[in-house]
Nucleic acid binder design. Structure first.
Lengths: 238, 238
DNA sequence: TCAAATAACTTGTATTTACAAGTAAAAATT
DNA sequence: AATTTTTACTTGTAAATACAAGTTATTTGA
């Protein structure tokens, strides 16, 4: 796929182990090889191995026990958009389709935006888009995205259908999500939202307001997500 | 307060810096002292300092920038029960009162519990309690807690009014929450829930189902939380 | 046989050292 | 004066080492 960039060793091992867990090579409750064994297996030193394991533990893939080892913890297969960092989203990309409602357009920022904006962001204007995301052809997320228009040439003319916005940003602009914050509310569905999510008006909808930090200083992604949680739950770790 | 246990250096520095940020000694956007300076200030080595900073970054108190430094990031003062680890909860304890609805009782587990249970947990039975938590005298959380009855002598006879369950577990049983997972849904308020949260029946309520891991192997805390998000949002980092 | 002590593992904490890579300010050059 | 280069400072990555502390299986002792 992408270019084989020189990624750090600890990140490499993280990806390997995460993949192994995803593929079921290590199952729920299994013990990962000990840190010492991993050192020998992959030719790294313990601090490096430990850094990989720390990240895995942080992401909830393993639970570390002093004196015992690192126990694999398979996360329930629920909708996991709460974890966007790393290479893959927690929800399988296979069954998740994207339908564009409003193609990316450059507009001024809303007057009372949900997050405070820097002056640079305000001047740059806002790339706005609306997407509907369907899980097994059932609409689950109604997603409004906002990005400051800084160093993103030709982004409004790119193909977004069935492709992750994050993937496009990473592949074409080397932008990676490093983390973020969010507010969560339960609100009644408006007429517009209920239409998109196939709900009755007034039915409970989960509303997320998210601000995502990137490796590009000063560049943030914002999104307002309305989520139909009738059949699926949002899953998260803390 | 509690006994001065020998806490690790990196944890000590974490608490110090977090306190300084909380107290406003470092404000939004400020640069923390460099890692080298922190080493000298607190007589630690860089890996130790870095461990503290990594935890702070993970908890969202700082954002690290290679070549620049660690920038303080003040989190919005919203309801932050999503972060329970560490010593203090993200929501100020001052304004949050607790009212017991059902005093702790030992009962068998529900047949279809929201999380799978180990055989040990099933045998031990379940300490059950219901609490209402009020922010500025407005009911915000309706909280049902479940704990497996393992090595928790006399817990059903303890005072829980206006005291954190976590604090009691830590002070009397040396149990600390290390992390956990949760499912989030938006549901219509039932008659019972709407009564407690001062809402109309059918109004949207945030429902959290949480499983919390402790430093005590095999001991988990479970809670089902119904949250009135009309005025406040749940805040979280990812 | 059973229980306690031991040994052999595991992860946790911490130091020391070294260099790479990114940032920003100072200095040199044009 | 404006631009480029250098320098100094920042965090990122990585190795080698040591001991502490928790867990588990084995060995030892009664």
């Amino acid at each position: 796929m992408g270019p084989v960039r020189n990624i750090p060793q600890h990140k490499r091992l993280y990806e390997i182990l995460r993949k192994h867990i995803d593929e079921g090579i290590y199952g729920e409750g299994d013990l990962l090889p000990s840190e010492h064994e991993l050192c020998q297996l992959y030719g790294m030193t313990r601090p490096t191995v430990r850094q990989s394991l720390a990240t895995l533990a942080n992401d909830g893939f393993i639970i570390k026990h002093q004196g015992k080892g690192s126990i694999v913890h398979i996360l329930p297969r629920e909708i996991g958009i709460l974890s966007v960092s790393g290479t893959t989203s927690a929800v399988g990309d296979r069954n998740l389709k994207t339908r564009i409602i409003v193609r990316p357009v450059l507009i001024p920022w809303e007057k009372d935006f949900m997050f405070p904006l820097s002056s640079l962001e305000k001047e740059s204007g806002c790339i706005y888009m609306e997407r509907l995301r369907l899980l097994n052809d059932v609409p689950i997320f109604y997603d409004i995205s906002y990005i400051a228009n800084v160093n993103l040439p030709r982004i409004t003319s790119r193909q977004f259908e069935n492709r992750s916005l994050f993937k496009i940003l990473r592949d074409h602009y080397h932008i990676e999500i490093k983390g973020g914050e969010q507010r969560i509310k339960a609100i009644p569905a408006s007429a517009r939202i209920s239409g998109f999510l196939h709900l009755k008006k007034g039915q409970p909808v989960l509303h997320l307001e998210r601000k995502m930090e990137t490796n590009n200083t000063g560049l943030f992604l914002y999104s307002s997500i309305f989520c139909n949680t009738e059949k699926y739950s949002i899953f998260g770790r803390f």
